[in-house]
Simulated assay, not measured.
Amino acid sequence: MAASIKDVAARAAVSVGTVSNVLNRRVGVSPDVSQRVHDAIAELGYVRNDAARQLRAGKSRSIGLVLPDIGNPFFAEVARGAERRAADDDMAVLIVTSDGDAAREARLLELLLEQRVRGVLISPASEDLGAMQRLADAGTAVVLVDRHSAGTPLPSVAVDDVAGGRLAVEHLLAMGRRRIVFLGGPLSARQVSDRLEGAREAIATRDDAALEVVEQAGMTVQHGRAAGERLRARAVDDRPDAVFAANDLLAVGMLQALSSSGVRVPDDLALIGYDDIDFAAAAAVPLSSVRQPAAALGFTAVDLLLADDADTDRSHVRFQPELVARASTAAD
């Protein structure tokens, strides 16, 4: 039978209240007594029922984080930032992956609510924010991550992706490139459509430049490699002279396909990605990219969630992206 808090108190020769004070790190317990309690816990293998304690207290020490793809280093860094901030308040982050599927996302939200999470951080799988709004209306704190929600009462933390798309294509234009492909998808994803909007704004400033849109079903290395193989199969005079990939994984896949077929980056084709994940700088040809402060997104999202839980004003935080020029666009 599992040891109880009463067993720990008896072994340490203290009251149950003292054991509780030690477990909850309250002041007023001498180092000697605290050590006896911890020794008793170790000897008995005691594990407290934190779920029951949280139900009695009415507050959870866990936060749900719903991401579309934890395999993407960008979202892994968002999660790391969230965990770092949550740890400051002695809280844990429960990370689940929706795979960009709205139905799966709905099931995961139900599961997190059953776990009595303090609140939910979510990068939504679709434009429909109805489920998130209903959660908030029912009293569960919700913060949108990597998604701006101005015009709604839902707090959000995001990057200005329109500005990011504009930065990427302005850089390519400044490097003398005029036949540019935008690679990304699905275009229904807000982040992708915003980056495309910024790219179009930049192209519109030049009468001698053109933007071709190549939509992919996803944003993985495999999708980028497939797009690169189709591009290299074109006649030489039908190829673009630059590609703006909507994330770095697509850019890495594109680089792999081009390099294996003798298309030289950046001589024949300049290539820029988005997110500035670690793989970008470490690629065979270091990739130019548009940097997002991924860890800061996660850290700030937890800040907003806990502030919202404390009844302070809801807010929308929008970071500005940063251009990082490397060898793939002929940067010095």
Rank of each mutant, 00 (worst) to 15 (best):
N247W: 04
L67Y: 10
L258E: 09
V285R: 03
E215I: 00
T220P: 03
V22S: 02
A217M: 05
M219C: 05
R85D: 02
Q133N: 09
Q320G: 12
G198Y: 05
L196V: 04
A257W: 04
L65I: 09
S156H: 09
R48N: 10
R264K: 13
I122C: 15
I5R: 13
S156N: 03
V120K: 03
A2T: 15
A280N: 08
S328V: 05
E215H: 07
L112D: 05
R230S: 14
L44D: 05
L271F: 03
R239N: 00
A257S: 07
A57M: 12
A280P: 05
R107Q: 14
A282C: 12
Q191W: 09
E127I: 01
D208N: 05
T205Y: 07
L154R: 00
E229I: 08
S34K: 15
A86R: 09
E105S: 03
R118W: 12
G100L: 01
L231P: 00
T152R: 04
R318M: 15
G139V: 03
A283G: 08
A280C: 06
R11D: 11
V142W: 06
L108A: 02
A233E: 06
I41N: 07
D161R: 02
V22Y: 00
V27E: 15
F299W: 14
G262C: 02
L65H: 09
A284L: 14
R107P: 09
S261G: 10
A282I: 10
E43T: 15
